[in-house]
Design a protein around this nucleic acid. Sequence first.
DNA 1: TATATTGGTATCCAAAAGTATAGCAGATTC
DNA 2: GAATCTGCTATACTTTTGGATACCAATATA
Lengths: 118, 118
Amino acid sequence: MGRISQLEQIKLCSGQFVLAINDTMNVLHGKWKLPIIGSLLYGKKRFKELEREIAGITPRMLSKELKDLEINGIVTRTVYDSIPVTVEYKLTRSGECFKKVLDVMVEWGLQHRKSTMV
Amino acid sequence: MGRISQLEQIKLCSGQFVLAINDTMNVLHGKWKLPIIGSLLYGKKRFKELEREIAGITPRMLSKELKDLEINGIVTRTVYDSIPVTVEYKLTRSGECFKKVLDVMVEWGLQHRKSTMV
DNA sequence: TATATTGGTATCCAAAAGTATAGCAGATTC
DNA sequence: GAATCTGCTATACTTTTGGATACCAATATA
């Protein structure tokens, strides 16, 4: 036995888990983050491209959510000084890895449908 | 080649994926569903037990979210006519399987923390 | 008799999230 | 000269979500 009791270790550990889950929830939060990430999984996109691809989103929300995702380390924003200006949004490594989460979400969702819609 | 074009099949398939993801999002929606599910993963609980265990929740929200989870096939509600009445909430099979989703959420969250907090 | 227990509901209010609409600057196309 | 493209921002509004508080009936306990 070390200097930290087993109970303490469990608390520490589950605390980490809660933080981790919260981080993941931040990526899922709101109506538009998933559509944005989904769209970026197929490759980098410009602002207007995203706006056109994601039906119903307003530039205000797109801008806000992209900022959120950038702050959370899910996308990067790159400005090229072309004319007119080009701004490119792209998933980070972590953002790409998020596909794993989406995959189990799909998997669970499909199984759940199968098991409840009998 | 069958009577459905490949493009149609892809659309059909990705449509299913969207539904599946939405189903999963329904389980994650709101401030309290995850704490409730988390608590029920350790076994069935009564209303007041959940209320005591989940710090800060009001009976109004607990009642509402439990109904939601029941409708979505995540928990079952069983009433025993003891005195006073006993109401037991328990995860369904699908609800238990949801742990898989939580597990990857934790996994991604931990990795994300590692890779961003360098 | 007063209080606590069970599992909730009713009502009202505040905060958060999202929508609608308009606009900007600087250049290009019609 | 008007409209269109870029990538946004500002303002005002509506909708959704969640919180606070009080209350219910029936019974057991102090």
